[in-house]
Design a protein around this nucleic acid. Structure first.
Length: 427
RNA sequence: GUGAGCGUAGCUCAGCUGGUAGAGCGCCGGACUGUGGCUCCGGUGGUCGAGGGUUCGAUCCCCUCCGCUCACCCCA
């Protein structure tokens, strides 16, 4: 009666269990390989940063900063924050370690957990995982195109289809403020006709109105001025080049002049890939250029572009395309069943030697009837079972059972070392 | 932060207009002394999310709280 209630994971944070964790590992491995192919290198930054980094980087007025961050005062009364995204951290590290002194483009990738205190729902968690890359040190549209090419290649490696690449330009510090003023004026003319949310947004965040999904508002929104048409010559040319380079690469995209992103640091190119089957949170990844971010963080001018993929959502999309096998796929696993204490000693020694050769081996932990051991071996997906009893100890030969064929043959130590030893990956 | 739906066995779920609970799967054992999957037989299984109220009596009705899910918002 006095049992304490078991502790649970905190809301919006979850355990990734096998066999699903296998898919996560595979995704991360494939992403690493691909990033290396594009000459990106890994960067690992702290999960905790000074709160000011995000206030200055992401934007004081953004939803992320105003209501979604896990922020607390440390014992020395410094304000710290669990990172809600990683671009600001990467650029901070870029400045802190003076990477701008190195020649050429700095290409960095990262993967890991981010934290935002939102109400959880499908594809949205308070601790979620992002895989992303940043190319810092060039404002060439070639970098934009190559980054998007890499992203498309990543999706292709998982045979993912049914996604749409949305592209836009949000201008720069010269053309955007002028546009927002124009937009606000235009909204004042029509604000009475819009939905309540949009009436509020008209003042707080006019760009958001363009993203409204209420059907009745669409005709009115269609009549509003478009940022894309107010771009300054530099931004316009940049956008044209990116489009051309994407066409060269046969990458399909949809210009979405209303595409709005929630982080203030974006300039010029912004993009997003949406996927059906993700529920309401359909953004699989998003990114864009941030030519002024380094300066905003106290660094030199260092234009950059990056993207971030929602790994939780990517898993949803991949699983939908090809459901994870529920049976653990561990065909290469060798299970050693033993009968009696001296057989156990021998099994443990044999397992140690095989594992030294990189073989995957499991030794029955408890004394069990052979029938039971085979049952367990079968359930955990072992490809073979080695049986060791007194007889085998004396002869130095053991029955090796192929679990999928149900056939048995007799082997000795050398046979085992030869068949189950695995050459080590050398990297 | 707002709204809606849902909390019954390890899992997926049934449970009639209120009479203190069932199935399938799983798990354990046996048929088969050292040979898994299939089959058959037997067994184990529950503070009905928590607390309070109404009632002779609550898994069922009412209230509060907690949790989960989906959506709004926003985003990955």
């Amino acid at each position: 009666m006095n049992r304490k209630q078991p502790l649970r994971a905190v809301k919006g944070m979850r355990d990734i269990l096998p066999p699903e964790s296998r898919l996560w590992g595979r995704i991360e491995q494939v992403a690493r390989e691909l990033f290396h192919a594009y000459a990106y290198q890994e960067i690992r930054t702290p999960l905790v940063e000074p709160t000011e980094l995000f206030a200055r980087g992401v934007g004081e007025e953004t939803d992320i900063v105003t209501k979604e961050m896990y922020t607390w005062e440390d014992r020395d009364s410094k304000s710290l924050t669990l990172r809600p995204e990683a671009t600001a951290s990467v650029v901070r590290a870029f400045i802190e370690h003076k990477m701008y002194e190195q020649p050429g483009l700095k290409k960095l990738y990262y993967m890991g957990p981010m934290f935002r205190r939102e109400r959880p729902q499908k594809g949205r968690y308070r601790q979620f995982f992002q895989i992303g890359a940043e190319a810092i040190g060039s404002d060439s549209p070639a970098v934009d195109a190559e980054l998007i090419e890499m992203i498309v290649a990543l999706l292709a490696r998982f045979d993912l289809s049914g996604f749409t690449l949305l592209l836009n330009s949000v201008g720069c510090s010269t053309c955007r403020p002028a546009y927002i003023a124009t937009l606000r004026d235009a909204l004042r003319q029509v604000s009475g006709l819009l939905c309540p949310d949009c009436q509020r947004r008209s003042e707080t965040n006019p760009l958001r109105v363009l993203d409204c999904k209420v059907p009745e508002d669409q005709p009115i929104i269609d009549g509003l001025p478009i940022l894309f048409e107010s771009l300054c010559p530099g931004c316009f040319t940049h956008s044209q080049r990116v489009e051309e380079y994407l066409q060269d690469r046969q990458i399909a995209f949809t210009m979405q002049p209303r595409l709005v992103r929630g982080l203030d640091y974006y300039t010029r190119t912004t993009f997003e890939i949406v996927h059906g089957a993700l529920g309401a949170q359909n953004a699989l990844l998003g990114g864009g250029r941030y030519d002024g971010l380094s300066e905003a963080l106290g660094g030199p001018r260092a234009p950059g572009i990056g993207f971030s993929l929602g790994e939780d959502r990517f898993v949803l999309a991949v699983e939908q395309a090809a459901p994870v096998e529920t049976k653990a796929r561990t065909d290469r696993l060798l299970y050693i069943a033993w009968l009696g204490e001296s057989a156990y000693r021998h099994a443990a020694e044999l397992a140690r030697e095989l594992r030294a050769l990189n073989a995957a081996v499991e030794v029955a932990p408890d004394a069990a009837k052979l029938k039971k051991s085979l049952e367990i071996a079968s359930r955990i997906g072992a490809g073979h079972v080695l049986i060791i009893g007194d007889q085998e100890l004396a002869e130095g030969k053991y029955p090796l059972r192929d679990m999928s064929r149900g056939e048995q043959r007799t082997v000795n130590n050398d046979d085992l070392f030869r068949e189950f030893g695995v050459p080590r990956a050398n990297e």
